[in-house]
Design a protein around this nucleic acid. Sequence first.
DNA 1: ATTCAACGCTTTTTT
DNA 2: AGCGTTGAAT
Length: 782
Amino acid sequence: MVRPVDPILDPLNPAQREAVLHGDGPLLVLAGAGSGKTRVIVHRIAHLVRDLGVMPWHVLAVTFTNKAAGEMRERLEAILGALARELWVQTFHAFGARFLRREAARAGLPPAFSIYDDADQMALMKRLFSEMKLEDDVLRPRDALSRIDRWKNHALRPDAVQPGEHDVEGQLALELWRRYEKALRRAGAVDFGDLLTRPLQLLESDEELRRRWSSRFRHVLVDEFQDTNPAQYRLVKLLAGERRNVCVVGDDDQAIYRWRGADVSNILGFDADFPGTRVVKLEQNYRSTGNILDAAHAVISRAQRRREKRLWTERDRGAPLALAVAQDEHEEAQRIAWAVSEERRRGTLGDEIAVLYRVNAQSRPIEAALRAARIPYVIVRGTSFYERAEVKDAAAYLRLALNPGSDLDLSRVVNRPPRGIGERTVERLRAFAAERGLSLFEALGRRDEVPDLKAQARKALGAFHAVVADLHARVGGLDAGAAVQEAVTRSELILRLRAEGTDEAVEKAENLLELVAAAREFDEARAGEPPPRDPEEARPPPLARFLEQIALLGEADAPTPEGRVALMTLHAAKGLEFEAVIIAGMEQGTLPHDPPWAQDESPAERAARFDEERRLCYVGMTRAKSRLTLSLARRRMGFGEAGPQFRDTEPSRFLAEIPVELFGEEVARQARARSAPAPAPPRIRRHPGSLPGEPVIELDSDDGFGPPGRRPGRAGGPSVDYSYDQRPEAARPFAGGERVLHASLGEGVVRGCDGAGPDAKVTVAFHSAGEKRVLARFLRRA
DNA sequence: ATTCAACGCTTTTTT
DNA sequence: AGCGTTGAAT
């Protein structure tokens, strides 16, 4: 009998199928790493639309990242075709922006409101500091912003915040928040947090609105649910409404954004908050070998608060994990470079290899070593095209054109390009504006009334005013491409950069042209869209939507250039997978990260943070499909009281938790030979915060960040001897004629060798550097 | 007004 | 070690 192939249901395993076929009512999918999480969401949506007749515009799927949203949309389009375009698939923030554009009037916002990114926020906060003549003795602008951010994550408003009587910092932050909000309102702008909190507040306070929006979505699906903050959670709850058709997918073991306001309780307590929730666990892993999964499980299973689950795979055990121990970060970098070239030698493509680290600063020596070994790499980083100064200048002109009241944008570009308007002049203008309660733009219009201005300054201000007023008058009706073109021309940004003539300036000018091209592309994409069916919807100018896209969309979509090894932080690696993964800095203090400024946290706070470091390690390990290398340096440059200094390191606790056998026979044999006392089995104890029925493993009672064994009576210790040198080179001496690789000197041929082991002196004829004597430990067979 | 140099200061993760 | 900010010089 031939059964027809169903592309939606056939490729699913039983658990996935259960999640996809689940009908109405709340659904919690606990999706372990590599278990087909996205597949479940995509196929569930496809099933709803194709088989259950749900209209695509009645489905809302929110993700955390643009990349995830894009991938989801793509896969849906492959299954559903044109129907997929009617679905609401986007990030939380993009949804918030879309909501606010539609409800701009109710939100008290101009239809073309701007979105301030964190650089804008910082600039605004610094402005407020200087206006209030604040030193940063009580609070730095950064601290104020992080408090405001925290408040917004919890969907609070200034009136709801009550700092203690003696909480000077809190009081000041609150006062700054009030002024900050006022400044935003005046500029016709919202910040990142507002994109969540303002829709939420509107929905909570306006019943009609709530009814309209919650009835609009028959099904709400949330990806990476463990990363939601309280505001997002409430928003989801409201949008799901009484229908409660909410499907959340996530993995509490991969919750790594607590510091950004994400609350694991959202996923841990979801079924308690939504009675009748069906819980589906996806535990079959399609990514990694057995060894990698076992190692990862050894690390994650010791987390304090988690929902029990264990990944399994049909793949075989695979290669043992590799361990690389270096003297310092430079040697570590060299070894990583070797490991990478070894990988490439066995045929692994560059872009199937990733080097992961906890903090960006770790990338520096690794980059140097890769460069020396001529291994092409990319740093997958946050700094995007849109963060470049010249692009931000152009964006500021554009936002100013839409909202001339944005003092922040005006201050940014008033003298860019230089047109003879100095700090003093701006200060006078500002004072005048403050006195009359005007925006800077309005003050500009009445520049003749501003006292103490030199004629030259007045003239320059007049010219600038004309530029902005002109852009303001014309830009609203233009397409985004034409508007951007107009702005970079009229402001003379491009002209002046070209006139400068330096390579740097020319590149900047080219970037601006690229911005124009991006805007044109945006217009073209928009031309293909159907007009909104909502006649009452406010129609913001295309430019506003283009700027919104700039603000919301980093360069996250930029695919890793082909063939290049990816270097990135552990955070950035979430959601990705690679054939081979190397995690650098497996040391106490680095992973788990324990920065000096976190020393005076409460024990509870430290415990929560340690757990998150553990999950971060787990996320990193589970990125690997076939080979996982863990690397550490026994000495590392750190920052002390008096600048940089060397510090001895302890191997990471997480490393010690991985069973030695997983590192292969050789390491296990050595460990046994050393006859280290067997580690004490972890004590099983119920943690006060754990949910009923969940066994919780408690480690020894120190907080996990310090060196192991510092408490009396702690048995065991690291079960792997970290002095063990895994490189086979250590054993076999180099012979004449062998081709070798040196991290900084490149390739060469061995001429002679004195002694054996890592300290042997080897004479090498390098292709580029000539004949040199180097220590064997710095060489690798090519 | 603009530019350049020295100083001091901070170091995490980012939709 | 690098960065941004501040201060002085042109």
